[in-house]
């Protein structure tokens, strides 16, 4: 029942997305755009003192993958607001489907699409000069899937709780900038003053980025890597729990 309904929701969302050529095209072009726009900049930044040691692509690509996971999931809440307004959410809540299946089916669509984008990004990065074994790429995709799932679940939960694009958009903006800056994805945090570094240490995404970088640099069995992946997994579980709570909380 649960998995069948999850599949039903997933299939509906997937078909809706694939029928939209703009969604498919932008989804595939976006990772390549990241690389071509940031890549040239990266070669300059890599020579700055304080940039983590190692091959610059192995530092840069994990950051982009984490960014893809976070930001790819961030905005899906807008879609659930539109669905709520069209009566689709109520229609599904009044059906016998388990509430968890209603959110998991949606989250899985986002996980699949983000994983494909992650694969495109790494394939393109390989052309630019990234050289890592296939299983490292696989771990990279796993992390994108975990983070993407977590953020898509949080985003659906927030969208459905707020039910207004006008409140949802500022919420996203409030979170996006600090998360991005303090994770060291774009600029190394070693350049930051002490207080900013402390803030960054509290930011879980800094550790997720560090973990994936460790994997890309070959330290797969390190504590840093385990901590990063563990955090991502915990976020995904928390996200799905919160999401299922918000969906069932619609009936109150």
């Amino acid at each position: 029942m649960f998995w069948r309904d999850t599949w039903t929701i997933f299939r509906r969302q997937m078909i809706l997305s694939l029928r939209n050529p703009a969604w498919v095209l932008i989804g595939l072009l976006q990772p390549i755009m990241y690389l071509t726009l940031f890549g040239p900049l990266l070669e300059q930044v890599a020579s700055v003192p304080g940039f983590p040691p190692g091959d610059s692509w192995k530092i840069f690509v994990p950051g982009l993958l984490v960014q893809l996971g976070i930001f790819g999931g961030f905005f899906v809440g807008f879609a659930v607001i539109a669905e709520w307004r069209a009566g689709v959410v109520d229609r599904m809540l009044v059906s016998p489907a388990p509430r968890g299946a209603l959110i998991l089916g949606r989250v899985l669509r986002d996980v699949v699409s983000l994983t494909v984008q992650g694969a495109v990004l790494m394939a393109a990065a390989t052309l630019f000069g990234l050289a890592v074994p296939l299983y490292v790429m696989g771990l990279g995709l796993l992390l994108v899937a975990l983070l993407g799932g977590a953020f898509s679940a949080f985003s659906y939960a927030a969208g459905l709780a707020l039910k207004s694009e006008d409140s949802f958009a500022p919420l996203i903006n409030m979170f996006a900038l600090p998360v991005l800056l303090l994770s060291g994805i774009l600029l190394p945090m070693s350049l930051a003053p002490r207080w900013l570094q402390v803030l960054s240490d509290i930011n879980p995404f800094k550790h997720v980025v560090d973990g994936l970088r460790a994997v890309f640099l070959g330290d797969i069995l390190s504590m840093t890597a385990a901590f990063g992946f563990g955090l991502a997994l915990a976020l995904m579980v928390l996200g799905l729990w919160v999401g299922a709570r918000v969906f069932s909380g619609q009936v109150k």
Partner: peptide, 22 residues
């Protein structure tokens, strides 16, 4: 419901199928 039941840009049969399956 008063609010409707389908997404404006979804093909009718897709919505009907998903509804029946639930």
């Amino acid at each position: 419901s008063q609010a409707g039941s389908t997404l404006p840009d979804a093909p009718l049969m897709l919505e009907i199928e998903s509804q029946g399956r639930l």
